[in-house]
């Protein structure tokens, strides 16, 4: 059964369908929340699944279920981050980073210091850009899917990705992050970020 059918079946009371849907997308959801809201993964994944059922009428067939799912997940995450920041009005996904909301270091324990550094750096760029990178490099989402998930006009997605990579480089070049190893080039950076997914999955 395809995802849309599963969602509908679940909404109709077929828990088995719901479990199937949950299994299919759990890993991606876990990755999504683990990097940005580690303390509340359980609650957020749960809320996301339930919200999908509730707003299933918003799921139009013109996008993949995945895009819809991450649109919902994104909403939940924004809501959570807003509630975590000291001044709720201050939270702006295009400016605030996860690190700004929670200054403690990343709890992802990568064995390699470089990986650790990269994870940490990603927490320091505006969370909207962090999401763009993760959804593109880790979940292989197309520009169309990204547009739906982030609620952006499709034309702006590519420029957003560019900005995300730029922001990441800037962070890596900042005094706090500078080390003896050189900052990777843009291409290199893309590969490194992509490679983080495997590291994350093993944690």
């Amino acid at each position: 059964m395809d995802d849309e059918a599963l969602l509908r079946a679940w909404a109709d009371g077929n828990d088995g369908a719901g479990e199937k849907l949950y299994r299919r997308h759990f890993d991606a959801l876990y990755r999504f929340f683990r990097t940005k809201a580690p303390e509340s993964c359980e609650d957020l994944i749960q809320t996301t699944m339930l919200e999908c059922v509730r707003s299933k009428s918003n799921f139009r067939g013109d996008a993949t279920f995945r895009a819809f799912l991450f649109g919902v997940a994104r909403h939940c995450l924004w809501h959570y981050l807003r509630s975590q920041s000291r001044d709720r009005l201050e939270f702006d996904a295009s400016r605030s980073s996860v690190a700004a909301c929670d200054p403690r270091p990343s709890t992802i324990a990568a064995r390699n210091a470089e990986h650790q550094r990269l994870f940490e750096a990603m927490r320091h760029i505006p969370v909207e850009l962090q999401v763009v990178l993760e959804l593109h490099y880790w979940e292989d989402m197309t520009t169309h899917e990204l547009a739906v998930a982030l609620d952006l006009p499709q034309g702006t997605v590519k420029s957003r990705m560019r900005r995300a990579r730029e922001a990441l480089r800037e962070i890596l070049e900042s005094p706090e992050f500078l080390t003896s190893t050189p900052v990777p080039s843009e291409d290199e950076l893309a590969t490194r970020v992509r490679g983080l997914r495997t590291v994350l999955d093993a944690c």
Binding site: E19, Y22, F26
Partner: peptide, 23 residues
């Protein structure tokens, strides 16, 4: 198994809350 313990725990916990039983 290769899957991280942490991840499995989250999976089971949420699964239990949503579907009422431990998978």
């Amino acid at each position: 198994s290769a899957q991280s313990l942490e991840r499995r725990i989250v999976f089971e916990t949420v699964g239990k809350r949503l579907f009422g039983r431990s998978t």
